[in-house]
Design a protein around this nucleic acid. Sequence first.
DNA 1: TTGTAAATAATAATTGTTCTCAAATAGGAG
DNA 2: CTCCTATTTGAGAACAATTATTATTTACAA
Lengths: 130, 130
Amino acid sequence: METQTKNFRKRGAILECIRCTKTHPSADMVYAMLQKDHPDISLATVYRNLALFRKQGLIQCVATVNGTERFDANTAPHVHFICTGCDAVLDLPELQVPQSLCGEAAAGVGGQVSACQLSFTGLCGECSKN
Amino acid sequence: METQTKNFRKRGAILECIRCTKTHPSADMVYAMLQKDHPDISLATVYRNLALFRKQGLIQCVATVNGTERFDANTAPHVHFICTGCDAVLDLPELQVPQSLCGEAAAGVGGQVSACQLSFTGLCGECSKN
DNA sequence: TTGTAAATAATAATTGTTCTCAAATAGGAG
DNA sequence: CTCCTATTTGAGAACAATTATTATTTACAA
């Protein structure tokens, strides 16, 4: 029973992990965070399940920072800030992409728009003091 | 003299190449396009110079599609459309990010905003007919 | 020509990600 | 409970994009 619950679906643990953090982690960060409760987890399992969650629409990739993808369990479209100093990805919940732009975009290409993404780049509060 | 002019600074050719195309090419695409006039160019040279141009502000990375970076010599902030069908990156010159948002973003993080990027994802006209 | 610093080609190394495959496991049928 | 089958997983190989290294070539000035 002990080992059973421990090994019972690491998939759930991965989803839980990404839902409980605000840092928009990469696959590697999720892997590191899970080490404590699941020391025998494989990095491949993390990648595999992140890809699955994305396909299922449970999470989304919100940015690619220095070549590594960053994920978010908040699938509602929202604005991000990417710090070039510390590679942090922050939410800007108070900002919103004007709805009208989506329609204009669809019209502009004569196709279908399924998502939009707005992100700002710069130095966060911490890093701008460096 | 012949060989001299031919070998004279491939850097210029790389910049020229990216300035003369509207497809927002990747490093690999630039490399392929240069093969004709510079069959002996190295892919590493393309990467190196693209990185340099970016640092100099001559070009910018406008998107990461399927893990590969796409560049643009138009460094003015403008909106893009990324087709998930054919991986094309298109301009949407008629759209603009409201200037007010940038200020709000800077205020939101208490830091400095150096760039912003808005992109829509979906199917382009061609692909939506598939 | 000769010295020096920058640019390059070739290739090795690194890094993020995906694939392969055999072993472990869950959940159902008997 | 026991067997069966499909799912999930770990380990590491494979892969592709990118970066670093190194020896060679080039531009240019003295």
